[in-house]
Every structure is written in C-alpha cells, then in structure tokens.
C-alpha cells in the first residue's frame, strides 16, 4: 500500500536519511524503530510532505506522491498523526475530528459516512466523547494523543503514520495507546508506527525496520527481530 524506494531527505544541506526503502502492505502494521536521532520522525515527515524529499520515490497504492505538498498527499489518503500530537488547541474536540475529515467534507476525497465515523471515534475513544465540546488545548497529554490518532483516522486513510504515540505518557496510558493500536490492527488499518519504545512496538507489529543513523540496519518479521540478539542488545535492554 505504501512503497518507499531509496528515500533521501533532511533539513537543508544536512541529510538525515540516506536511501531508505520500505514497504507497508495493505492491512498490516509495520514499525520503524531506532534510537534517538536515527531519522524515524524525519522519515514520516518526508512521507507526508512536511519536508520535501531530496531523492527517491514514494507511492501510495501505486500512485507516485513524491514531492507533493502535504495537503495534496493527504488527498491521496495518507494520514499522519505527528510527533507532539499537534492538535488544534482553540478548536473543540469535535471540530478537531472534523478537520481530520476536511478533505471528505470539501469533496477532495470521497465523503462516505463522516457522521458515522465520528460516532465510531467516540466509541473507540470514550474519553473524547465526554470532552467533545471542550477546547482541545485543555485536554491532558493522553487525551490529546487519543485525539491526534482519532483525527488522523477521520481521513479514512489508506495508510496511517503514527509518530511516537507513547511519548511523554504515563505507563498506564502507554498501555492504553498500544491497546488502541492493536484494536486498529484488528480492524485492518494499514499503519506505519514509529516508536522509541521498541519492545512494545515489536510486540504489536507484523513487520519491523531498524533505523540507524539514517540507514536501515535490519528488517524482518517483528517476531524474528524480537529474538535477534543484536536488536535485543541495542534496543530492548538485552539483559533480560
């Protein structure tokens, strides 16, 4: 569904990614793990057009979206729940969700059942239902994370990019976030998950890529990587 070949990207003259290739098949959950500064967030930013790739190709369902501005990439069905959540603080919870469906409400993507999807989001995230009229800026960090994910899902996306959904959350909320990701996987949402919390990501994912200094260091079924001694040593705190 998402096919990336030899992606090179960075900030100005500083290249962060050096020819990354990865593939996210339809209905699967793929995770991209790696240490701080390896280029995980940069990868997602390049995929969704927040930064312009310097080389390589990105395809969604066979359509080349390389170099398009982010609002046009969104119209091709790629949703991105960005690092730091980035909810719209002044808009209400419900309006944040409607913004997620902006392309559907304004005719640049098939409309489908927006009201039904809104109801489903409130079912999936009951906390958001309680706070639907509240300004998003007043939500707690965990609630904002739920909102950012729900807002991205409102696109009814072909591919969902999730950037560090567990960042800065209390352990109990991290569990909740991963439980939600597992539920989305069961619903066959195609996802690319970036996580620093590698153990949990490998637990839930089908397939994993390991990123090191802007290059792919390893890849394989999550189940295999989980038991790979090198990966365990580097990312899973191998001692146990």
């Amino acid at each position: 569904m998402l096919q990336v070949e030899n992606l090179v990207a960075g900030y100005g003259k500083v290249k962060v990614l050096h020819a990354i290739s990865l593939h996210v098949p339809e209905g699967s959950l793929v995770t991209l793990i790696g240490s701080n500064g390896a280029g995980k967030t940069t990868t997602l930013r390049a995929l969704s057009g927040m930064i312009r790739p310097d080389a390589g190709t990105i395809r969604i369902a066979g359509v080349d979206i390389t170099g398009l501005p982010s609002h046009e990439i969104t119209r091709h069905g790629l949703a991105h729940s960005p690092e730091g959540r980035r909810v719209f603080p002044v808009l209400s919870v419900e309006d944040n969700l409607l913004m997620g469906a902006f392309t559907r409400l304004t005719g640049s993507r098939p409309r489908g059942d927006v009201a039904g999807d809104l109801a489903r989001m409130f079912e999936l995230f009951p906390r958001l239902a309680e706070r639907r009229a509240q300004q998003a800026g007043t939500l707690s960090g965990g609630e904002q994370q739920m909102l950012a994910m729900a807002r991205a899902l409102m696109l009814s996306p072909k591919v969902l990019l999730l950037d560090e959904p567990s960042m800065g959350l209390a352990p109990k909320l991290v569990e909740e976030v991963f439980a939600t990701i597992a539920r989305l996987k069961a619903l066959r949402v195609t996802m690319l998950l970036v996580e620093q919390f590698a153990a949990a990501a490998l637990e839930v994912a089908d397939f994993a890529y390991v990123l090191e200094n802007g290059r792919l260091a390893a890849s394989g079924p999550a189940e295999t990587l989980k038991h790979d001694p090198a990966v365990r040593a580097a990312y899973l705190g191998a001692a146990h």
Partner: peptide, 11 residues
C-alpha cells in the same frame, strides 16, 4: 493554530 498540522489535514 498550527499551520503544519493544518496541512496534514489536507488544508
């Protein structure tokens, strides 16, 4: 509120 995030919405 957030220009970059608005772009991600398809705006």
């Amino acid at each position: 509120n957030d220009r970059e995030a608005a772009g991600l919405m398809g705006i």
